[in-house]
Nucleic acid binder design. Structure first.
Lengths: 255, 255
DNA sequence: CGTTAGTTTGACCTGTATCAAAGCAGGTGG
DNA sequence: CCACCTGCTTTGATACAGGTCAAACTAACG
């Protein structure tokens, strides 16, 4: 009971930080929505297809991902969902819990947006900002896979993941707990496990990162940003929203 | 004048076919919107940033694309826009005319949707279907780049492009005019120009395709679909939504 | 402690890139 | 009508990034 509330509060806090980071503006901790149970714990390895029963959902802890699997077993991770992220697999797509994942139903938020505040509200704008950011990262991912070397891909991913964690308060300025195992990194970056290991070593050797277990630190973040061409997709980096079609997004989530 | 009208009508016809193909339902040729000038011709090679002057826009002829360029000149094509497609670059993203491209302003359509028909209408639903389809193809692209061989990538692209052209009436059942040069294909598939040439030859040699200039034919489409794992993203092909991660699944996968 | 899941290393192989040159149009001007 | 561009594709030779296989290492954990 108490546990449940702590969980919902945590998810709420993370989500609001996320909104703030994506929109670039503080989002008042208004009372237009609250999360209440049921809270689900998805065991590591669980794969499920969207739209799910409690969907969309907010990740409270653990790492989820959108995945595709080819007939011969090859796996490609399409996107990562860190704590505070909205998880809402498209119809026909598969999502997976990479680690054990706690989620809370985001329906109250959707309701608050479609009935109450609306997309014009700060909350609504933040929601849209998050979606735009997700799509921008999806495009980043295409570039990473299509035109970057393993070395660049890994550095880029580390910078992106770190930044996302920082913005929900789960990492300090120059170091973080990497939440992905090497096999997941491999399936995300389109590489083999072995090569991820070797590439990590190379980044270390060349003085760009420091690693102890799953704890990563940036030894020379500026240079890493330079060599990977990393561009932040958070607030400041995004142009202001366009007038048209805000409605579309809402309906998609609602219907 | 007359030319202008022909152009707008053509764009309108293509767009409606596109809507129909994406939504899987005939879209009545309602009069809720019409395209009128100005019609732009974007010269081949032009790059521009969204949101552009006439945005969104419908491609009437030619090929446009969303592109990213790395600092050292490497280019990655994120998505292709064939005739009948909506082109609406995100803020901060770059679009390019790969060939000379004729476009018409899609504002009338946008107005019709936001003021008149609404998203619940057949037209609105078709619009949403197109957007969903674009996103599905974007995810396909990630898989192609991350986990498929050059051979698979190329075959997959040919099938996709052909299908898209068929649905706007620009290709017959088993052959089509490939609208992309090999350097564009390379930048789309994350390959070198030379390897695209070699891979094309291999597909030919193995009896999957027939090529004469830019005219491509499928010699054994079924086998090509099989070997590339191609899945259509057009209407009928979308899996019906399934209720998911109910407790049953959780239990089953828990172990 | 032994067991297990994850990472690292080494040896080797292959897919794809790179470089450079040669073929092949389709158009232009002489 | 030929001769020559110019833009695109193809071919060959070679190099390298990244894959595969298999074994050794590490660390957490019962």
């Amino acid at each position: 009971m108490i546990d449940l509330h702590q969980h919902s509060d945590r998810a709420r806090g993370l989500l609001l930080r996320r909104f703030q980071a994506a929109s670039g503006r503080p989002v008042a901790d208004d009372t237009s929505f609250t999360f209440q149970g049921p809270r689900h714990t998805l065991p590591a390895g669980l794969e499920f297809r969207g739209p799910g029963a409690p969907a969309p959902v907010v990740v409270a802890s653990g790492i989820a991902a959108d995945v595709r699997r080819l007939t011969d077993g090859r796996r490609q991770i399409l996107a990562l969902h860190l704590p505070g992220d909205l998880l809402d697999p498209e119809p026909g797509e598969t999502a997976a819990a990479l680690t054990s994942v706690d989620v809370v139903d985001a329906a109250p938020l959707v309701r608050a947006l479609s009935e109450g505040a609306g997309l014009r509200s700060p909350l609504g704008q933040a929601w849209l900002a998050v979606r735009r950011m997700q799509q921008a990262m999806q495009r980043d991912h295409i570039v990473r896979l299509g035109r970057m070397s393993a070395y660049e891909r890994l550095g880029h991913l580390l910078l992106e993941t770190h930044e996302r964690l920082v913005h929900v308060g789960l990492a300090s300025a120059a170091a973080f707990q990497m939440p992905l195992r090497q096999d997941m990194i491999a399936d995300f970056l389109g590489l083999s496990i072995v090569h991820v290991s070797r590439t990590t070593k190379q980044l270390k050797r060349e003085g760009l990162i420091r690693v102890r277990g799953s704890h990563f630190g940036f030894a020379d973040r500026a240079r890493l940003i330079d060599v990977t061409g990393y561009v932040s997709r958070f607030a400041g980096a995004l142009a202001p929203p366009r007038a048209s079609f805000d409605e579309a997004d809402l309906r998609r989530m609602a219907g």
